[in-house]
Design a binder for these strands. Sequence first.
DNA 1: TATGAATGAGGCTTCATTCAT
DNA 2: GATGAATGAAGCCTCATTCAT
Lengths: 207, 207, 207, 207
Amino acid sequence: MEKSKKRPSKLETPDREKEKISANREKILTTALTLFTSRGFFGTPTSLISKEAGVSTGTLFFYFKTKEELIDTLYRRIKEEAAKEMCRGIDKQKTTEAKIRRLGTNMVEWGIRNHAKLKFMEQFAHSPFVSTSAHEEGMSHFFFLGDLVKDGIREGAIRNIDPSLLFHMMAPALSGLVVQASEIENPAEREKIVQDGLDFIWNAMKA
Amino acid sequence: MEKSKKRPSKLETPDREKEKISANREKILTTALTLFTSRGFFGTPTSLISKEAGVSTGTLFFYFKTKEELIDTLYRRIKEEAAKEMCRGIDKQKTTEAKIRRLGTNMVEWGIRNHAKLKFMEQFAHSPFVSTSAHEEGMSHFFFLGDLVKDGIREGAIRNIDPSLLFHMMAPALSGLVVQASEIENPAEREKIVQDGLDFIWNAMKA
Amino acid sequence: MEKSKKRPSKLETPDREKEKISANREKILTTALTLFTSRGFFGTPTSLISKEAGVSTGTLFFYFKTKEELIDTLYRRIKEEAAKEMCRGIDKQKTTEAKIRRLGTNMVEWGIRNHAKLKFMEQFAHSPFVSTSAHEEGMSHFFFLGDLVKDGIREGAIRNIDPSLLFHMMAPALSGLVVQASEIENPAEREKIVQDGLDFIWNAMKA
Amino acid sequence: MEKSKKRPSKLETPDREKEKISANREKILTTALTLFTSRGFFGTPTSLISKEAGVSTGTLFFYFKTKEELIDTLYRRIKEEAAKEMCRGIDKQKTTEAKIRRLGTNMVEWGIRNHAKLKFMEQFAHSPFVSTSAHEEGMSHFFFLGDLVKDGIREGAIRNIDPSLLFHMMAPALSGLVVQASEIENPAEREKIVQDGLDFIWNAMKA
DNA sequence: TATGAATGAGGCTTCATTCAT
DNA sequence: GATGAATGAAGCCTCATTCAT
């Protein structure tokens, strides 16, 4: 209704204002991540988040207008980070198979280093607590996957089936692999699992 | 005044009376199923369930001691039904591949006829709202799958990888297929999708 | 969104269901009346109302969906009662002057017997806390006043000025009289004030 | 660093410094006036006032220790202004009637030019949000009215009734007139209404 | 003077659950 | 079996006010 007259930002603050940085804001996000994954969205009162984060209720609602906005922010961030991590080094791979395998490895490695984030994504991937717009934004980061698949089909490396179907079967399978792999401590064993899993996926889709 | 006229216990339903039958009870379960899938567990107050079911709050809590017990009952029922449906006619199939394919077709057909139940399973498969015991009981109905896989590996029909990993990649992939297929109206198109999906899965696991 | 399927009311309950009678409901209304007049709308937390009424928070919100609905109900009731009281015996008066005087006397007497209600009306007559619809309903009970004035003008008993203007000057003047009169204990003195006040009003409007 | 350069105290504003002058302070007062009249006291958070005034929360509380002090200041100012306006040119009128009529005209004209202030006075005239002391100070500006009435009675121009009663009936009637008149755009029509209204009032009180 | 992040008490409302009828 | 009024803990969020910069 009323537009905030956005005072001209001082020179010191460059214009990437979208994501203000603030120690408290970050503490809240980190704490919320942990709590949401371990207790669920409704199982985590905002009062608990602020207490655990060491700030007051007021502070939480100063940074996030609603509880939903908090989870949305978290969701967007993590999806973006995951997507970025996923495609790391993919363009250096020559074959489609190599790309797919690299992508899987990336995901597994990220999942192991970021257990909480992985669980968060698993839990809220289809959750109604996350706004549609956040879901869409989150999804958008993975569009490159669709392209990769289409290219693979065109080149004859991937079986010619509906890319959407392929995506909706491959993604949860990969997800399952990451979860299984990330639960294994021993690096050698884990490597074995990951390779088996990637075989599974690649066999499923290869032409 | 006369208490418990010792109801004639039919042979099929011995008196472990876990599942009392009553019109109101059923109405509550049916209503809850729809509401839970469309609004989520916390988004569905018990008062709404009872109102929509046309009974009083008291009645709901007469049949189910807590809200959790209601969702547990629902979960157990549906998992059991899904498992029963899944293995229908499997023993008549000769090869492992045929069995796997039959199983997939069963699931898809059931998913189409029982959209609400499918969504319910998707939503609450990993949900903390469902008690651990219900989750375990639900899972137990699918043990036969593990056996099927192990047999397949022993026979050399299925690739020799950790059955648990295989299960945790195959199950969500199948799930994805059912969801995708059940969203397609045209039977011919759907059949195509299903076959492609089953190819995907079988290629993934075959030796 | 969803219409309550209004079960067929049992024979014992005649169909004037609009205003359910319930000891608790009445206690809440009475308590709220007192508190609102002495502390204002925002100065009176719902928790205080329920505490003073001797019921739980839940009970208050069982009978009134929101705090606003509570004040609305109160407002409608009191306006209706006041209007009913105001026109008591007016049709028995022959002249317009007699009618106006009778009406004034009625108001004063009612105001003295119902001090809290009088203050409530004074305070919330133009208040934004009361919904527009309640304001309109409340006003509607006083339409007969407009008719009375118009009749008076037609008959030549009242000066020919815009009835709306007349109403908006007479009403608050009468209101002022009631308040002033109701603060006087001694009946004789009070009677004097009332007569002076009515003279004031009648002289103002008479042709 | 140099503190209080001992501002040159103009003769008109001796240093009782009750009313500091500052652009920001004035902006806050103006904004608050508008917001309070359109949204009420409790409906207007201090944060909204400061935002709309284009200053920070801190600044608002620098000039006004509390929210109540803000409304008090506003109330005192407006009452004083209204009273000053009301008696403009009254001493030049010879008869009591002329004085009363002049006073009414003054009020109406001021009310039209200062709609927000008029509404503010209407709304907070009996409000508990305004401190008693502010109410008393505000009232004191209108004492001259009491004197005018008493004089009128002594001279036989005004009917001999309790001046307090008269005041409490006349004031709201006049108030009603101002509101009604100020809602009319057309100057000629308005003039008509004002004259009718003043007739109403004068007839009410004349001997 | 001016800023705006930080505070925390307190307000309104929801909802699972009980129990007398 | 069935009803629905009653309960009260707990949740989300607002907002006046402070204070370090």
